[in-house]
Nucleic acid binder design. Structure first.
Lengths: 223, 223
DNA sequence: GCATATTTGTCCGTATGTATA
DNA sequence: CTATACATACGGACAAATATG
């Protein structure tokens, strides 16, 4: 089962079993198969994936560091359930990372990536595919941050968005949340392309304020 | 040995053995006892610290995620030796995190912390204690970032500075590097306290450009 | 280039401590 | 309070990869 695939990829690749297991778990969490707050049993999962508990524990450490899992000492690991305070902090970070990004002179290639993500979102919105809207939206903001041209900031944003996905998974209806922001993304991109960084930054701040408010509003009751 | 201390701290605290071992290793790396590029033997260290290899490997994962250690498959873990490109990226991140910080209206308490760190640096400089200057300098910039009032950004900065310390450890003479920036820190703080955020941000950008240039200049030859 | 020694990657069994029903 | 389930941590084992002579 996993063991053979494991050997193959070790031979021609670079990742250890623990890392590959982490990839699998990250994907499951990201798509919502493992719900926030849910406990992940060492025995159950190690058995299901065909790896030893030691190896699985290494994977848990990795994901814990990404804030997708929470380690409670002697109680096990749980899928993180971010608090309202966490949401507020995530948006503080977004203001910093995205704000700095839109103030920079944008590169041609990055602009194309941003545009593509936005176009995908608009198309998905037309077809009422809100799952796809959310995904494209995330790609849009990831691409915005990549204007900074910093691998570390890209990685930070990637983790931040993964954490934000946890929040979306406990919301009542993520569809209604993402919808109104597609049009705003278009405006934001327009300001960037027009070379008006300060206006773009101000618009973005408003944008994020509004998103944070709506998110916390839809979120708080669920705690 | 460590085992007993371990039990005590578990009882009254929250951290696991792996985390405590990670703390110890982080400290050793930070103070330069483990040099960048050096390989850390699983057997040697697990024996020296009195923990099992499995536990130690969990610690290695933690520090790997903090970019202090590098995992080479089937070859072991090494203390990271950042490349010149890494240094450039670290400074890109600093411009974003510190730039956003100085643009915000500063809180009284945070200002006091910044001031304290700076005063310590000035005092240490007078006494030619360059090690202490470097330490206080790091505290100064950490405090600057804390103006953002974001736990996640504080944590990012903490990790960034730990990584930057690796760079300092392979420099010829870190003393000469830190010295000229103490005076600039005072100017920067003055602009912040005077409520001139844009000037502070511009001054900071210059500051970081100069620091990056000097650092890469003193660093590149060593690769 | 080959044979050998070393080290990592992974797994297993087990003992102990902790949280919870 | 006891019992149970589970995480924590240890030590030993072996194969695979790497380094060494």
């Amino acid at each position: 089962m996993l063991a053979e695939l494991s050997q193959d990829r070790v031979r021609l690749g670079r990742s250890s079993t623990a890392e590959r297991v982490a990839d699998i778990l990250r994907e499951r969490i990201s798509e919502g198969a493992f719900r926030p707050g849910q406990r992940l049993s060492e025995e159950g999962i190690s058995e299901a994936l065909g790896v030893s508990r030691n190896t699985l524990r290494e994977s848990f450490r990795l994901l814990g560091h990404e804030r997708l899992l929470e380690h409670k000492l002697n109680r096990g690991v749980f899928v993180r359930l971010p608090s309202a305070e966490d949401v507020a902090d995530l948006y503080r970070v977004r203001r910093v990372l995205e704000g700095a990004a839109v103030r920079r002179k944008p590169g041609e290639r990055t602009l194309a990536v941003i545009n593509e993500a936005l176009t995908d979102a608009e198309r998905a919105a037309e077809q009422d595919d809100w799952q796809a809207v959310g995904t494209a939206n995330i790609r849009f903001h990831q691409a915005i941050v990549s204007l900074n041209e910093s691998p570390r900031l890209n990685e930070s944003m990637r983790q931040l968005l993964a954490e934000l996905r946890l929040v979306f998974h406990v919301m009542d209806n993520p569809r209604a949340f993402h919808e109104p922001f597609v049009a705003r993304n278009r405006v934001l991109l327009g300001l960037i392309e027009a070379g008006r960084p300060e206006e773009a930054a101000a618009y973005l701040d408003d944008y994020l304020d509004e998103a944070e408010r709506q998110l916390i509003h839809a979120y708080e009751p669920n705690r």
